[in-house]
Design a binder for these strands. Sequence first.
DNA 1: AGTGTATCCTGCAGGC
DNA 2: TGCCTGCAGGATACAC
Length: 277
Amino acid sequence: MPELPEAETIVRGLRPLIVGRRITRAEVLRPDVLREGVRSFAPRVRNRTILAVERRAKNVLILLDGSRRIAVNLGMTGRLLPFPAPPRGARRPGHPAVRFRFSDGGVLVFDDTRRFGTVECLGDTEWTVREARFGPEPLGDGWTARALHVALSGSRSPVRSWLLDQRRVAGVGNIYAAEALFLAGIHPQRPASSLTKTEATALHGAVRSVLSDAIDEGGTTIRDYRNAIGGEGGYASLLWVYGRDGEPCRRCGTAVERIVFANRSAFFCPRCQPAAR
DNA sequence: AGTGTATCCTGCAGGC
DNA sequence: TGCCTGCAGGATACAC
């Protein structure tokens, strides 16, 4: 599913295609993706003009006039597909959940096979409350190596779990956590508080470079992820460890391992990322 | 403050 | 071919 780079890629692709358009109606085909009733949601987006498209953490925000925004969490398999879609051959929605119709005849479809994603329309106050639950943006100026080290030192949680906790840092998911920990040479089960200042600094740099490189590549497509025009991301071929269990480490040749904790697979090179130090 | 487990849901790959 | 199991970029709630 989409992590920060995928959400960012979608936002950038969507922005020129939908800003300025007016939503004439929302058709909710799968009410369970809403976090509110259809009777509450549909009228709040009707006849609203799209002013901007932004991202916060892994969420796509469609800002509307009238001090409200549509917040889309893409979950594992969510997509936002505008139609008419430019390229022929681009995927047509297979599991449309919400369809926004524009006054010019265009359509934006939230498509989500597994329906772990969510769509909501939030006012300013609701959004402020929601937004406060997210930690800092890892690519923002406020997220420093020093601040990361201090934050890590207060938690005995495994560092991979720490990175996945959106309240601590917003937007890192399982792929980029694995990649950043590899680049920093840190075993995913190391307690957060055990990281030295040097390691925290390395992790800080690794998270940032992995995320920004992935944005440059348009995200990582393993299976389901598609950008706003149906295309795949190019970062999958650059992965060091994610999904490569049993294959040789691209740095040292040792077999990449897969372990499961906190109900998620973790991939690492046992030689490049020793368990203890 | 942690972990482990379960839940939401669909599809696909691999083993037999 | 079919059936079964396990697995998947996320997030949350629960008991311990």
